[in-house]
Design a protein around this nucleic acid. Sequence first.
DNA 1: AAAAAAC
Length: 487
Amino acid sequence: MTDQQSSPLSAPADMAAARQRFDDFGLSPEILRALRDQGYEYPTPIQAQAIPVVLQGRDVMGAAQTGTGKTAGFSLPIIQRLMAHANTSASPARHPVRALILTPTRELADQVAENVKAYSRHTGLRATVVFGGVDMAPQVAALRSGVEIVIATPGRLLDHVAQKSINLSQTQILVMDEADRMLDMGFLPDLQRIINLLPRQRQNLMFSATFSPEIKKLAASFLSNPQTIEVARSNATSDNVTQILYEVKEDEKRDAIAFILRERGLKQVIVFTNTKIGASRLSVHLVKQGVKAAAIHGDKSQSERMTALEDFKRGAVEVLVATDVAARGLDISEMPCVINYDLPFNAEDYVHRIGRTGRAGAKGDAISLCTPQDDKALADIEKLTGRKIVRLQLAGFVPASAVPYRERERENRYEQRSERSEHPRSRGSYGGSREKVDPWFLRPYTPNTAPAGARTEKQASANASSAPKPQKRAALLGGLRKMPTAG
DNA sequence: AAAAAAC
């Protein structure tokens, strides 16, 4: 809950009487103080609905997109309920985990934890976050010292369960955030195992952006007599977001992105790709063009992921090239624009991706590149969002392939020389065949009017590059996480 | 077809 919160002083006087305030919920002075610290006074619609219901101890099935203030909607009343039954013993053993919040991605867990810590800072309650890809020891130490609230991704949580560094036998409240995403990611067995470790008598809160049959089934099996909370029609795109669609050729996409970034002078933008390798490649390409870009995806080490996100938030990185790891949940304020380098495979992912902009009533642009192959994806998106998206030509855009080779060679001379030592042929690993050379840094000039045969050859070379040698792929992806550790 | 998540 940061950017979606309206300014405390912005409510017109004539509205103030009708408008609910956080003071109206009977939250403790310590919680209200934390809210004041952050300058929050008025609840968002989801908060106004969720807080009283959660305070009553009821189960909740909430349909809410990120950016609606959902996190505060469940964490404020949870903190209140835990305070109401405070445990004053100094012994860590007397501080069993009392509330567990599960999220699908590590970044989301981290972000939720930051919010929970902020809201509980004056209460004496302690919260910690637990996720994979980082050293376990500090997490074990935090858990041992005694925490009432744990925010976790499922895999690492079960890891802690296995080595007995966490005890869930006293956990009275369970939150499943982004439940639809967790199902998509195959977390159902893990969720089942975790739930089996909890007391039967507990409060369950489930949040999901969509209400698929699978989600309803999950709700039916895990929730008891839940109150349904819905703030906006699900699958709807925000009216604040202007959707723009440019039709380009596949091999023109990189140039088109660079062109769009330059033309619009974009300083805070996420570019989504469908693949991890695609994210890495595009970010390397943009950096070569002088763009402050970084990639974030699941094959990056956790420290690289965190660095990229922090650098992006503080402005050192202006273009975050991301896979769908960043499509949901991430709360980055003031994002005026989101770009789809690839149209996503699932229409729902499109909604989540463009939901990263146009938050808190601000205007935003969602720019997508599409190729003629994307007809089906586009039709699915238009069906889901109930809107027609007009295809436009990217005015003024000249792809690099349209610039005569000799001219490009002159422009790129320095770059090409510096790359030459990395040339696969110089290492003999690719043999001498020109078709197998990665066209990334040696792009043969192909006239736009090339005959069909030449086009096929170009495609073959593009295909070869989409399956680089494992070593090169690993270097690109920066997959520290995948490196074997001792033993 | 892809991505994410434990070691």
